[in-house]
Structure formats: structure tokens, C-alpha cells
Design a protein around this nucleic acid. Structure first.
Length: 291
DNA sequence: AACATTTGCAACCGCATCTAA
DNA sequence: TTTAGATGCGGTTGCAAATGT
């Protein structure tokens, strides 16, 4: 045995880097049906070429349904600042006070925005203080210490402190994530038609675009086959359709594809649209229709 | 327009902690 | 009590997009 800790998984057999929509859908679908009681076993059972830690991270930080998206509110910022002041870099603890926010997200916001705000704010405060001190130097030498130790709060991104700190013109409101937020999943400029019977064929469809996944499908044992090899009966077809629609509704929400007025995402027609031309041209199309 | 720099954030890494045998 | 495996956590990195020159 070599020295050191054994790696959590065989790095040569797993995929790293950004997650593809196909992988996301596969993970969401699997966890919806089977939960995530065992992260280490999950990738294999779900047919994902990822290590368990990577799956867990992806689910917790991006895919789980209770995540809140969009701007951190001034109240949330204040909560982070206050909690960080009292407990430090305990991001997961801080996250428990901000429902729908992840420790990673909070950490990023702190490192990229709030810390700078506080630092610059303090500097500004000290500068202001120094100016004040200069004015009153002859009469009040205690001014500087009291100013330097004063706490800074930011009631909103547009307060004078926040707005004066940014190098970037729109930074005050910029750290909000864009809507359906992850650009990798923001399919506005890409069009995808998802076949309705995706339990079986949809994965193959996605995998046709994702050769690395395809290779794992034949290797995976058990779980997928369990729910894919259900005998086709009228009852099963109905229940599968219900399940399918539930899954789709869920996925729409996950991917931010539900239109603002609440329209459901439905498939334009019930036939798979997998012609080679479409696949080759990558001209995907999410099809919206009012229910 | 082209290149350089900065920014934001998803994802990775490795250590800490928990848990079951 | 010990040990090994699984999970959680926080620090850090890589890269794409935005911005500046």
C-alpha cells in the first residue's frame, strides 16, 4: 500500500469539469426516483461518469429543487456580514440562516463582493475619518480610533458606500446570478426538442451527443434497468405518462424553463424528433405551449 | 478591432468529522 | 476502542465573460 490517503475514486475513469445538461438531467431524474442515500454508489447506479463527491456537489449547489435563485437581498447580505462577523468562515453554518442559499454561493459572494465592500468601506471610513481628524486634529485626537473601529453596514447595494466602491459600473447589482442562472443551462439561444418517452430513448438521445456517457450505459448495473424494463401495459403506460409529466414539470423548474406567465413546457408533438440533421446542426428547440 | 486585465462562479482538492462494523 | 469508508466543509483554482486600454 502506498502512503497517503486513497483517492475517493479512480480519477482516470471519471469525468471532470463542467456538467453537461445531459448529466444534470440524469442526476436529477435519478435522485428524484431513488434519492441519494449513497453518494459513492450513485454515479454508477445513475450511469454517470462522475465521482460521488462531484455528484453531491452538483446536486447541493445547483440542482436541488429548494435553491433560491437570483440576487442576494440587502437583508441576506446583512445577515452574511453579521454572521461572518460573529462566527467567521463557517459558510455552512451561515447557509443555515439563509434558506435556499448554499455555502458555496455564500462563500463566493463574500469573497467576490462583501469582503471588498467591507474592506473598501472601512478604508473609506478611515479616509473620511482621517479627513475629519485632519480638520479636528488640533482639538480631538481620539477621532481616528473611534472611526477606524466603527462597523460598516450596507443597507442596499445602492447605498453610497456600495456604489462608490465598484470599479465596474454595474457591479452593485451584478453579482446576482442571471435568472435561470447558469449560463451552461440557459438555453435561450439553443433549441432542444426533448422526446416524451425519455426514460429510455431520451437518455440515448442525450448520450448520442455525449459519447462519454454512452460508454457507461452498458456498464451500469441494476438500477436503470429496474425502472426502464417495466412491462408495457395500459396501466403502466398511464402511470408512466403521469410520472413523465411530473418529471418534466420538475425539470422545467430546475432548468428555469417555465415561462413567466406560468405556462407549462410541453412537447410540441408526441413523436421523437431526432433526425440526424437536427442532431448534427445542434439546432435544439425547447418548445413551449400554453396548457 | 485586438489584446490585456479583471471579475464571477462552478468545480475540484484535501482535510475534518461522522458512522458503522 | 479502533479502523476504514462515507460525507461534509472550507480553501483554492480554472476558465469564460465582461470590461478596460
Amino acid at each position: 500500500m502506498g502512503k497517503g490517503r486513497a483517492p475517493c475514486c479512480d480519477k482516470s475513469k471519471v469525468r471532470a469539469g463542467p456538467w453537461s445538461p445531459a448529466e444534470d438531467l440524469r442526476l436529477i431524474n435519478f435522485i428524484q426516483k431513488h434519492g441519494h442515500s449513497n453518494w459513492r454508489a450513485l454515479p454508477k447506479q445513475a450511469g454517470l461518469l462522475r465521482c460521488g463527491k462531484s455528484c453531491r456537489l452538483r446536486w447541493i449547489n445547483y440542482l436541488r429543487p429548494d435553491l433560491k435563485r437570483g440576487d442576494f437581498t440587502p437583508q441576506e447580505e446583512q445577515t452574511i456580514i453579521n454572521l461572518h462577523g460573529s462566527i467567521g468562515n463557517k459558510w455552512s453554518k451561515i447557509a443555515t440562516h439563509l434558506p435556499g442559499r448554499t455555502d458555496n454561493e455564500i462563500k463566493n459572494v463574500w469573497n467576490t463582493h462583501l469582503k471588498k465592500k467591507l474592506l473598501t468601506g472601512k478604508r473609506t471610513s478611515v479616509d473620511n475619518c482621517n479627513q475629519t481628524q485632519a480638520k479636528h486634529w488640533k482639538t480631538d485626537c481620539s477621532a481616528s480610533s473611534s472611526c477606524a473601529s466603527s462597523s460598516i453596514t450596507f443597507d442596499s447595494p445602492s447605498t453610497s458606500c456600495a456604489s462608490s466602491l465598484s470599479n465596474r459600473t454595474n457591479e452593485a447589482s451584478e453579482y446576482s446570478k442571471p435568472d435561470a442562472t447558469n449560463p451552461r443551462l440557459n438555453l435561450d439561444d439553443e433549441n432542444i426538442i426533448i422526446p416524451p418517452n425519455f426514460d429510455i430513448d431520451f437518455w440515448e438521445f442525450l448520450e448520442s451527443l455525449d459519447p462519454l456517457l454512452k460508454s457507461t450505459r452498458t456498464e451500469q448495473n441494476g438500477v436503470n434497468q429496474d425502472f426502464n424494463d417495466v412491462p408495457i401495459t395500459a396501466e403502466n403506460v398511464n402511470s408512466q405518462e403521469v410520472e413523465l409529466r411530473r418529471s418534466l414539470s420538475y425539470l422545467e423548474k430546475e432548468l428555469g424553463l417555465t415561462s413567466d406567465d406560468g405556462d407549462n413546457l410541453l412537447f410540441k408533438d408526441q413523436e421523437m424528433n431526432l433526425d440526424a440533421e437536427m442532431i448534427c446542426s445542434h439546432s435544439w428547440e425547447w418548445v413551449y405551449s400554453s396548457s
